[in-house]
Each structure stands twice: as C-alpha cells, then as structure tokens.
Design a protein around this nucleic acid. Structure first.
Length: 558
RNA sequence: GUCCCUGUAGCUCAGCUGGAUAGAGCAGCUGCCUUCUAAGCAGCGGGUCGCAGGUUCGAAUCCUGCCAGGGACGCCA
C-alpha cells in the first residue's frame, strides 16, 4: 500500500485529534487523554472499527460516556475511508468503511505488489535477533526447530515492519560442554581404531558421535593417535565441532532458516570483550570475590542471588561470556534492540541478564527474551525421549523428512511460543491432508488456477473496473486482505508470530467462500470478469505474502 | 520453598493494551460437484473461560489466594 499508515492507525490519529479539538472548544474537560484504542468489533453490525475512548474518558471526567462520544464525533475530520460514524451505547464510537474506498484498495494492493503489507513501524532502527544458538555438541531436535522457525519468521515480519534486522547464531565453542564433546569424540575415535578407551562420565553417548569419529577416520586416518592426549582431543574436537556446525547449518537451511552472522563464543576472548566487560563491572562495583570465586553481585540489583562469573579454577562461566557477548551487541555493534529466543530451560537466565545489562548502563527495555516452550515428541500414545546425551533422539531432520517443510513450519507457528506443544509424528503424517497448511495453500492454488484460465482465454484485465465489486463476498474478502499490515504491526510489536498463522487461515476461509459464491471467469459478463480478476490477483499477492512471511511456499498447483 | 509458562467446546488451540451476544480447526450430524481444483462450501449440535475472592460502568483478560500440569532454581550451557 502506498499509504504506510494502516486504517487503524489513521483512526487512532483522527480520534485523538478530535478529542483534543473538543477539549480546546470547551466541550470536553481538559484531562490527559488515555491511549486511544481502536479495535475490530466482534459483531459485524457494529461496523469495521470501534473505539471505547469515551468510556475511558468517562472515568476521568465523571461525564456520561454517550455525551462524550457525541462531543468527540462532532470534531472528527472527514476522511475518504469512512462512510459512517455512529455512537452506540454504552459509549462506543463505531466506524464503517466506505465500500467505494474498500474496492479502491484492490488497485492499491496491486500497485504495491510484493511490498504490500510492509509498514514503517521500525523506522529502519537496527534489531538483532539471535536464535537457535544450540551447543554444537549434537544434532538439532524438534525443540530447536520451533525456535528456528519462530526466529526466522519474526525476522521476516520485523523486516516487513521497517526494521533493519540481523539474524545471528551464537556458537558456544568454548565452554565445558564443548570440552566434554571433545573428550567424547576422542574416545570414540580411539575405540573405532581398536584402542580400549572409556567414555567420560559427562560425555555424549549418542550414536552420532561414533559415526562422526568414523567419518573423521575416513578423511584423516589415524594421525591423531600419534599426538599427546590433550592436543589430540583438542584438534580432533575442533574438527568435530566444525563438522557438527556444518550439519546444524544444513538442517536449518533445509527448514528454510538462514543466518547473517555466525558468532563464536571463543572470539570474545580473542578480541578482548571478555576482559573489557569484567573490568567495567568491577569499576561499577558489581563484582565480589568470595569462596575462591568471582561473583556478579546481582542481589544489588534486586535479584534473588549472586552469580558466579569466574570459577575458583579461574575459568569463566557461561554467564560471564554471555555478559561480554551482550556488551558486544549493544556497545560495540550498537544494535537499537536485541531479541534472544531461548528454550524453556533458560528461563532463569532472563532476569540476571537483564540485571547485568542495566549494570553495563544499557536500558534493559532494549533487550527482549522470548522463551519458546518445550516440544514433546510423540508417536501415537508413546512419548519419545529427546536427551542428547543418552543418544535416543529423533533429529529435526528426521521430523522434516516425515512431515515436510511447510507443514512443519506452519505447525510450529500455529501456537503461541508460551504454550508447550506435543508433536505427534503419527498424527502429523496420518492427517497431513487435513493440516490447515493445505487449506491455506489450496486457496492459493485455486487463485492460480483462475488466473491460468484467464490467460488461456486471453483475457486482459488491466482495464477492469473495480467499482463493480459490490457483492458481500467480495467486500468481505477485501476487508480481510486489508488486515495484513495490521497483522504485521501486531506481530512486530508483540513478537508473537502465531497471529500470522491464524490470519492466513482466516484469509483462506474468506477466499474459499468467495470462490464458491462468485464465479470469476465468466463468458456472460466480461466487465465483471475483469474486475474480479483484479480482485483475485490482489488476493494472490496477499495470500502469498502471508505464506512467505511464514517461510512457506505458495504453490500454484496442488 | 522461590521463580517462569500453561489451564477456554469431546480433542488441539485463538481471544490483540479490560469492552458490546466467548471464537476457529479437528471429531460428530445435515445438505451441496454440468461451468475457474470438493485438499472446498453452507448449516446444526457442543461452554460453570481450573476454583474462590477483589478492583469497576464493564473481567476469559487486571490483582490476591488456592488447585492441577510442565519447566527453572549448578563454580552446566
């Protein structure tokens, strides 16, 4: 749409201007205006948009809400979109859109093309979104897939909402879990070469480790055996990590998830952010030595307890490097906002990260953590365990192979990140034809089919007159199409991606209903055919745009 | 014990910053294919919004307490 403002935003502006004018004219007491809310009424009889502003003002002024409503309506400036403004008890102001304006939007959508739905909420401010960031000690499982799809989709939506977005994967290549990975790999390597070696107690027992060892032997031979132990497991481990990361990257690409930056934890030591941050915190008085270790005094910032940053053996904790990492994000790379998507097991990490960020003098509001809740795998009634260490895992890749990319993405996006989900592999496979994803994509395929027929009959719709679109199913479809920018705004400001999946279904529903009731390509009425061809071409843009935001394909045939 | 998430139709879930008669899909039951894809459409039935208080013109939504399920509380990440 050429106008970047959504209708909703425009109404918000009109209302607050009107209320201010009413105050200036003495028709309303000069109280501070509450935040003006405009919403879609549940009941269509109440119009397209409604505001409860008068009801909110009634509390502050003590006046009758209906009188307030009338006073405000009197000052609402005329606008090309609006047909009627009605005051309704107990004190709502209801707006109905002009049908001529509605149909006119079809041309606007066609003119906007692929950029329809884009808004300017972000004003090109810089947002970094970090997600997945799994330890490269094993293959990805479904839970990681959920975070990956969520992060990737949010990045798409934030970009559409006018932010400059960078997607980042943080590689934990320096901690003790990576150390355990290296020792485990070395053991498997020795064992594969016939040497009696024992797995470390904290090791990774999954079958992929033995396979990784074999792969390395096939490529590099037994040369690591001649090295002394720490060097051998170090070099071998580094090789193994690289392979593991490549595999993770490949699995994510399979899901359509890519990153702009792969950031390594180890670089925080090489480039000095770690020591810089520690001295900053020390200067701020947030560091204390006790029990032979170094602590971040989060209790000074209202936290329940302090946290160790440097262990008694002198090695920094994960928390310490994460502090340095966020210093790098905010101070060195100067992102306006930083979003981290974490698994449910990181929930306890949120408040101390917020605390430490404010200790570094950064407004914690600029840092947003999203917790994506657990995904349990199921085969029918049986739970499938997904412990990386035990080795009994179903990988993300296996799930994608079984269910398909589009269904997988839609499934992850169709529920709020806050709620846990059961992923039933049998159900996903057995009912794949009934999955809402096919319902939505089928709508797109039907539109493509209509456009194919029009092309076969060599119909040129470019001079179609959209003012002929006056029937109810047509207007219902257009109204729904106009919501895409609002959905983009909602997802971008709440960081809740599931609204997109629901919108996609609603859009498909109104299209299918239109399709049933309104024949598009008709031999009887050439003018109406052309007008409707424009409408479905616009609907195709909106539907495919929505699917693409979700990282899904919009098939022309099914 | 403390903290986080969840509890809405038989099932899976929406319900936006408090708003008008609480919604969708699946499952069940009725109808609808001579014409652009029936992976579709139209309709019916189905609710103590976990429980109890509170806040107010108004609560599924906010507050308090309780119950239930899951998760986190480490010098792991």
């Amino acid at each position: 749409m050429s106008g970047i403002l959504t209708v909703k935003q425009k109404l918000v502006d009109l209302l607050s201007q009107a209320a201010t004018k009413a105050q200036e004219a003495g028709k309303l007491p000069s109280v501070t205006l509450p935040e003006v809310a405009v919403e879609h009424p549940q009941n269509a009889d109440h119009g397209d948009y409604a505001s409860s502003l008068p009801l909110k003002l009634a509390r502050a002024t003590g006046l009758n809400p209906l009188n307030i409503a009338n006073s405000i309506v009197e000052f609402i400036a005329p606008s090309p979109e609006i047909a009627t403004i009605v005051v309704a008890p107990p004190g709502f102001i209801n707006f109905t859109l002009k049908s001529g304006w509605l149909t006119g939007q079809v041309e606007q959508i066609l003119a906007a093309g692929d950029s329809y739905g884009n808004i300017d909420l972000g004003k090109q401010s810089r947002v970094q979104i970090e997600f997945v960031s799994v330890n490269p000690t094993g293959p990805l499982h479904v839970g990681h897939g959920r975070g990956a799809v969520l992060g990737n989709t949010l990045a798409n939506v934030l970009t559409a909402a006018g932010y400059k977005v960078e997607k980042e994967f943080y590689i934990n290549d320096a901690g003790s879990q990576v150390d355990a990975f290296k020792r485990s790999l070395y053991t498997r390597y020795q064992q594969a070469l016939g040497i009696d070696a024992e797995m470390p107690a904290d090791g990774y027992f999954g079958g992929y480790m033995a396979q990784l060892a074999k792969e390395i032997i096939a490529e590099e031979g037994d040369r690591f055996l001649s090295l002394p132990e720490p060097e051998a497991s170090g070099q071998l481990g580094k090789l193994g990590l690289t392979k593991m990361i490549d595999q993770i990257r490949g699995d994510l690409e399979l899901l359509g998830v890519t990153f702009d930056v792969w950031f390594t934890e180890s670089s925080l030591y090489e480039k000095g952010q770690y020591s810089t941050t520690m001295s900053l915190l020390k200067q701020g008085g947030y560091i204390a030595e006790k029990e032979n270790a170094t602590w971040f005094v989060s209790t000074a910032l209202g936290e329940d307890k302090d946290n160790v940053v440097v262990r008694s053996d002198g090695s920094p904790t994960y928390f310490a490097t994460d502090i340095a990492y966020h210093y790098n994000k905010f101070i060195e790379r100067r992102f306006d906002r930083v979003i981290n998507i974490w698994g449910a097991d990181h929930q306890g990490h949120i408040s101390r990260m917020k605390a430490v960020v404010s200790a570094l003098g950064i407004d914690p509001e600029r840092l947003k953590m999203i917790i994506s809740q657990m995904v349990s795998l199921r085969r029918g009634g049986d739970m499938v365990r997904v412990s990386k260490r035990s080795g009994d895992i179903i990988t993300l890749r296996e799930v994608i192979d079984e269910v398909g990319i589009d269904a997988c993405r839609f499934f992850f996006l169709a529920r709020s990140a806050d709620s846990q989900m059961d992923f039933d592999l049998e159900l996903a496979k057995r009912e794949s034809a009934e999955n809402p994803v096919y319902y939505v994509q089928y709508g797109h395929a039907r539109i493509a089919s209509i456009l194919r027929l029009a092309k076969e009959r060599e119909i040129d719709a470019s001079d179609g007159d959209i003012s002929l679109l006056v029937s109810e199913p047509e207007l219902v479809l257009i109204r729904k199409m106009l919501l895409l920018p609002e959905v983009v705004e909602q997802v971008a400001s709440t960081l809740e991606a599931h609204h997109l999946a629901y919108y996609a279904q609603e859009l498909a529903t109104v299209f299918h209903s239109f399709y049933k009731q309104c024949r598009v390509v008709s031999r009887e009425n050439g003018q109406l055919t052309k007008a409707r061809l424009k409408l479905v071409a616009a609907a195709k843009l909106v539907l495919s745009g929505t699917l693409h935001l979700m990282g899904m394909t919009a098939p022309d045939t099914m």
